[in-house]
Design a protein around this nucleic acid. Sequence first.
DNA 1: ATTCTTGCAAAGCCTTTGCAACTGC
DNA 2: GCAGTTGCAAAGGCTTTGCAAGAAT
Lengths: 162, 162
Amino acid sequence: MDLPTLEVSQTPKEKFREYLASGPRPQRFTRQHADMVDYIFSKHNHFAADQLIDEIRQEGLRISRATVYRTLKKLVDAGLLRELEIGQVKYYEHDYGYPQHEHLVCQKCHKMIEFQYPGLDAMIREVCRQHQFQMDGHSFVIRGLCADCNRSRMMKRRLDLV
Amino acid sequence: MDLPTLEVSQTPKEKFREYLASGPRPQRFTRQHADMVDYIFSKHNHFAADQLIDEIRQEGLRISRATVYRTLKKLVDAGLLRELEIGQVKYYEHDYGYPQHEHLVCQKCHKMIEFQYPGLDAMIREVCRQHQFQMDGHSFVIRGLCADCNRSRMMKRRLDLV
DNA sequence: ATTCTTGCAAAGCCTTTGCAACTGC
DNA sequence: GCAGTTGCAAAGGCTTTGCAAGAAT
């Protein structure tokens, strides 16, 4: 978490419960839902489903793989999580209470660095207007080497030349 | 192909052959390689591996699924194709002789609309500089409904209200 | 002749799904 | 009690890989 969090009036759990209850066919709020929201909003920023499953198990919580996948989808619909597609894998991060941003992804250490760029939002809206395109979302990822990995590669190269 | 093509001095096939021949371990230029480059640069702009396999078959060319995947990877390394990751699937498009651009992807008809935005490149470089990030590439996709699909949805909604 | 490439089928990875048992409301 | 949820295991979609046979240089 690099960026400042926003003020929010409800806890994530309350918001999820509300989302589930509303709608034409109310959905139920289960123990598994509660455990997942509690865990996710106590820690993470970026995570893949598989990582989450491992960590949840280590925490002693019992939720099946299928339920984790199903609940992640609901959390995205509820506006609590954002879904990022990086490589072939879906990653998730907090959406509720956290500002929109883009990512630099290190191809070596897989670190994800968040950034915001002032003009980006206006740019996106302008492009959509020009093409009469009704935007639903976007993904913007810059791949490469982070400062640390780049530095260590430089070091290695210097040593190799000796 | 919406954007103007660039002047290039070599044919894609020549460029691929050259790429394969150079390097510490020269690779071979096979009939399958030639057929794929010929086919891809005679037609497509955007395509997934599976589409390509179907079309290649219909054209009467015989190349196995494994070889298509392996050759696509080489074509990307050679700088002839760019790889786009959209959803869980990899798409490919011409890189050689075609300018850098971004995509609007319609979630209904899966149309891909290309766009260029003047300030984008400078923006990316600026962000990388700030984070001392050594960029290798980027992907920028805006999801939503294209003008056509949006229009037809409007129509339908209007009819539903009658 | 040597080394790289092909084709096949099998495995891999991540994610989704059918179904019977279960549980929130 | 009714409808939605869980867990399991199996299937799904896309991509990669091991290996023996084949082809380019």
